[in-house]
Amino acid sequence: MDWKELQTQWQQSGEGETHDLPIPTEKKLESIENGLKYFYQEQGKNPNTYYAIVQFGLSALMIPLLIKKGFSEIHLGHLVFIILPLAIGNLIKAIQFKETNKEESLLVYLKSSLKEVRWIIFQQVFLFGSMAVALPIYLIAQSNSSSSETWDGKYLLLLIPFMLIFAVLIWWYRNHHNYNVYRLNGLLSGLIEELES
């Protein structure tokens, strides 16, 4: 192989199409940086955090319901405890999105929201996963208990370690999959497109 010739060819290869990619001006980059700064600042008070707490808390209302009624009496109507928090949470997020991104259409929000479906499924799987793990332990402990004391309150205590595991798993998932980075990339591409148009 003639490496010298390859080097020459290689260096010519990028030059012919340089017109395809416009060089971002400093002004554009400043706008991007401002956008990024804003985004990172917003991350600290991200509505997602509040949203997750509200959603998680409301979904957890299913727990006393399960204890009181037992699995046999649970029907589809009770899914409102899951759907309602999701709907309320999404509504809050949509309003906040519109407030902070006045120029963007809600379609952009919906598009990014769809990508979060996996995330929501993950939350629910872990929530009910924690319950599914804690419940048999509770039932076994209750049947083995000699005293007639009720274990209903203790079930909630039993759930705490599993909830903590759940929280760690969510934290891992967010970090491992760079969840926020996708949102950031999406935001950046949108910003760049807008600046270039």
Binding site: W10, Q11, S13, G14, E15, E17, T18, L21, I23
Partner: peptide, 9 residues
Amino acid sequence: SSNKGRIIR
């Protein structure tokens, strides 16, 4: 601009 080709590659 002077390093564009390099970055593109």
